[in-house]
Design a protein around this nucleic acid. Structure first.
Lengths: 196, 196
DNA sequence: TATTGTCGAGACTTTCCGTCTCGACAAGTA
DNA sequence: TACTTGTCGAGACGGAAAGTCTCGACAATA
C-alpha cells in the first residue's frame, strides 16, 4: 500500500500550532493549580478549544499529558560531560530532580503515571519515554566505566533504576522531598557502590 | 462528645465476615485475571454481593484494593534476624520481591498506586502502609548499624527508598523483571554502598 | 416478640469519556 | 475567482463507571 501522503500533497486548512500550545499549557496549568477536576472538557475549555480539536491530535488525555511531560524532560535535562562520574552524576541528577520535583511538574508526572496504569496506549508511549531517560543515565555510567571508574561486575541497569526509582517513588508517595541535597546524596551513594 | 459505641452495645445483625473475604478475594481475582474491566459493579457481582455492602465498609474501590494489598504484604514479608546485614537484606528483599513481583499481586499494586494518585483518601491510607513497610526495612538497617556494619554517614532513608524505589519503578513501568536474582543483586549493592 | 442493623438486588443520578454533527473558516487547486 | 479539502470552536449525544438510595428479607440482640 503506497503512502497516501506521497500521492497527493496536503490540502485544506493546516493544523493550528497555537491551539496545540494552548492545549498542552492549559493541561499543565490545570493540574498544577489543583482546583477542581482535570478532564478533557476542562482542558478544552481552559484552552479555548473544542474537544474534537484535542481528540483529532491525541488519542486520550494521558497522551496529551505525556507529550507535555516529554517536552519538559528533554529540554530540562541535557547530558553534560564533566570528566568524572561524580561530576556527571551530580549534573544529571541535579537537573533531573530540579525539573521533576518542582511545583508544576510533579503533579503532572503523578497523573501521567496513573493514566499509564489504566491505558495500555499511554503505557506504550510511556515505556518509550522511560527507555530514553534510562539510556541517557546509562550512557553516563558507561562512559565512567570506560575510564575505569566502575567495578567490572556492577549492574548498571540496577543503578539506573535505583536513581529513577527513588525519584518516582518519592514523587508518587510524597513522603520525602526531592531537592538538591537529595540529588547529591543519591549521586554519592551510586559512586560509592560502583567503585572498583 | 461521648463515643456512641460505649453508650449502647451493638444491636442488629453483625457484619458478615464471609462477605468481606469474598469481596477482597473477588477484587484480587478480577485484577489478576485481566479479563474485562474491574469496577465496583463487577467486583460485587463476582463476590455475589450487593454494591451497598461494599460501600458500607469501604469508601471507594481503592480502599478495597489497598486492604487486600496490605493484607498480603504483612503476611508475606516477616522481618527475620540472620545476624548479618547481607543475610537480613537478602531475606527481606527476596520475600518482598517474591510477594510483590508475582503474577496476581503486581497488577494489584499497579492499580492501587494509580487509585492513590486520583483519590486523596486512598493516598492517605497508602502513605500509612508505605511508612510501615519503610520502617520494617529501616529496622534491618538500624540493627546492622548497631553491629557496626554501616558507615556513620550513610543515609538510611535514602537506602530504603532505593530498595522500594526499584521495586515500584519496575512494577509500574514493567521494563525489567523482579525475580530472585534482582533481589540479591539489589541487596548486594546496598551492602556495598553502606560499608564503613 | 420487637428492635436494630446487615444482607442482596437493582433503580437512579452524576461525572467523564469519546463520537458525531454543525456552520465557519483557512489553505491550496482549478 | 470559484471550488475542494481539512481544521476550527461549540455542543449534543450515548455509554461506562462511581456513588446514593430504596426495597423486602434476614439475623442478632433486648
Amino acid at each position: 500500500m503506497p503512502n497516501e501522503e506521497s500521492r497527493r500533497p496536503h490540502t485544506g486548512r493546516r493544523r493550528n500550532e497555537e491551539a496545540r500550545r494552548a492545549i498542552l499549557d492549559a493541561a499543565v496549568e490545570l493540574i498544577g493549580r489543583d482546583e477542581g477536576p482535570v478532564t478533557i472538557d476542562t482542558i478544552a475549555a481552559a484552552a479555548g478549544v473544542g474537544k474534537q480539536t484535542i481528540y483529532r491530535w491525541w488519542p486520550s488525555k494521558g497522551a496529551v499529558l505525556l507529550e507535555a511531560m516529554a517536552e519538559r524532560a528533554t529540554a530540562d535535562v541535557p547530558v553534560t560531560d564533566t570528566g568524572s562520574l561524580a561530576g556527571d552524576l551530580d549534573a544529571f541528577l541535579l537537573a533531573t530532580f530540579r525539573s521533576a520535583g518542582t511545583g508544576r511538574t510533579a503533579p503532572l508526572l503523578r497523573m501521567v503515571m496513573a493514566e499509564a496504569q489504566r491505558d495500555e496506549q499511554v503505557a506504550e508511549v510511556m515505556r518509550d519515554f522511560i527507555a530514553k531517560r534510562r539510556a541517557a543515565l546509562r550512557g553516563v555510567l558507561e562512559r565512567a566505566g570506560g575510564r575505569g571508574e566502575i567495578r567490572a561486575d556492577a549492574d548498571l541497569d540496577l543503578m539506573v533504576d535505583q536513581a529513577f526509582g527513588v525519584l518516582w517513588y518519592r514523587i508518587l508517595i510524597g513522603h520525602a522531598p526531592l531537592g538538591e541535597n537529595e540529588a547529591r546524596e543519591l549521586g554519592r551513594s551510586l559512586v560509592i557502590q560502583s567503585r572498583p
